[in-house]
């Protein structure tokens, strides 16, 4: 899943969650309190714990799932822990860099002919520009 979906998904989920929260609050205040009924029924079957409408519960659960997916998608990428996998990935992504760059760049490994040719081309370019 692309990571640009993370922010909209999370924001939308938060919106739904706050809506569900306010709905639940409104629902709890809309039910008139019945002290006589509360006193007569045992606490375990108190009406508040089970009386939440299905749509509010569903909205809550769905919004939580949405936010979870959004958070996980938007999280930073994990990095491979074994050195060879990690170094190979770094080298591939940076185009020949990587943690062993220092070893690759030792003086003994320099391709002197390529460097000479590069320099000669550069000098030729400079001469060409000067004559123009």
């Amino acid at each position: 899943m692309p990571s640009y979906l993370s922010r909209p998904l999370t924001v939308l989920g938060l919106l739904f969650l706050s809506h569900a929260c306010y709905s639940a609050y409104e629902h709890s205040t809309s039910i008139p309190h019945q002290p006589s009924n509360l006193a007569s029924t045992p606490i375990s079957s108190s009406p508040t714990s089970t009386s939440l409408p299905l749509d509010i519960s569903l909205e809550t659960v769905m919004s939580v799932i949405m936010i979870c997916v959004g958070l996980v998608v938007g999280a930073e990428e994990l990095k491979p822990i074994t050195w060879r996998v990690w170094a190979g990935k770094v080298e591939r992504e940076s185009g020949g860099g990587g943690p062993f760059q220092g070893l690759e760049d030792r003086l003994g490994f320099v391709d002197i002919r390529a460097k000479r040719k590069e320099f000669a081309d550069w000098v030729r370019d400079q001469d060409g520009e000067n004559q123009r």
Binding site: L17, S49, S63, I67, C68
Partner: peptide, 13 residues
């Protein structure tokens, strides 16, 4: 996510 689940279970009662 832990605090998020707390919010959800509080709403669900």
């Amino acid at each position: 996510t832990a605090s998020l689940f707390g919010v959800a279970s509080g709403i669900l009662g």
